[in-house]
């Protein structure tokens, strides 16, 4: 008799706990994001490096490709995504290297929260950095080359592409910083794996820039969404074994 009473009581208790666990998880994510953003706001190391680097890449493309009007039409999305990918790698590498340098990662791992909360926190702050860089590069490119890149479709693709790139990039960056060849490892690991995301982003952006019909762009956008989901899921499942000591 007693048992039948305690079971629903325990279930009710569990139910009460459930939202608080989710809230705790979100809180942990927010704490990591806040920590990264606050650190960045004070030092401005990462964003300034990413930005200057992104602009330099565009400058180099300008000389390398002679970006005149007809060329620009066909290569703009490619140039943009190469720039984002390079600047993104720089940011991902740095954001994990500072954790490793002063033993901050160990401190983070000691926190009594789910490890995946740390992953999501790092991923979200990396995404924020990447989006800030993109938010500056896109208008700058429009201005420099007199082409309007401020287009809702293109912005949507940029956000989706960045999510996929950062999702897998954060996972691989946390692996790369723990190897002997840490600085050169990340691009080698990341680029071949991120190709589906980059390919889909380039094709979809090109479609929006050239004003193609939706039916021609959608397969690429769908591929992009699929890879966003896959990469987030894989990283969520494997992050534990990447940081485990």
């Amino acid at each position: 008799m007693k048992k039948s009473l305690t079971v629903p009581a325990a279930a009710a208790l569990e139910k009460q706990k459930q939202p608080s666990r989710v809230a705790g998880f979100l809180k942990a994510i927010l704490a990591v994001v806040w920590k990264d953003l606050a650190a960045e706001l004070r030092s401005r190391e990462l964003l300034s490096a990413m930005l200057v680097f992104a602009l330099l890449v565009i400058l180099i493309f300008n000389f390398a490709l002679e970006l005149d009007l007809p060329t620009r039409r066909s290569v703009t999305s490619g140039v943009l995504w190469v720039t984002f990918a390079f600047a993104g790698t720089l940011g991902l590498n740095r954001s994990m290297a500072i954790e490793k340098d002063r033993g901050c990662l160990d401190g983070l791992l000691l926190a009594p929260v789910d490890r995946s909360a740390i992953y999501f926190g790092k991923a979200i702050s990396n995404l924020v950095f990447m989006l800030i860089v993109e938010a500056i590069v896109l208008p700058a490119y429009s201005l420099l080359y007199n082409t309007n890149l401020i287009n809702p479709g293109l912005i949507g693709v940029t956000i989706l592409g960045s999510i996929g790139y950062v999702a897998v990039g954060t996972l691989l960056a946390s692996m790369a910083v723990q190897t002997r060849t840490r600085d050169i490892m990340l691009p080698i690991l990341l680029f071949p794996v991120a190709i589906p995301v980059l390919l889909a982003s380039v094709k979809a952006s090109e479609g929006f820039l050239q004003g193609l019909a939706g039916a021609e762009i959608m397969p690429w956008v769908n591929l992009l969404i699929v890879y966003d989901v896959i990469f987030i899921a894989v990283a969520f499942m494997t992050f534990d074994s990447v940081v485990e000591e």
């Binding site: 691989l172 692996m175 490892m185 794996v193 894989v234 494997t238 074994s241 990447v242 485990e244």
Partner: peptide, 27 residues
């Protein structure tokens, strides 16, 4: 293979390369 070369601890090497193979196999 480069990743494996860069890690000395065999246990960590195994974990990392397993994760990377999993991510790579999605391609």
């Amino acid at each position: 293979l480069l990743l494996r070369q860069g890690i000395d601890d065999p246990e960590r090497r195994a974990r990392f390369s397993a994760v990377y193979t999993l991510v790579g196999s999605l391609s």
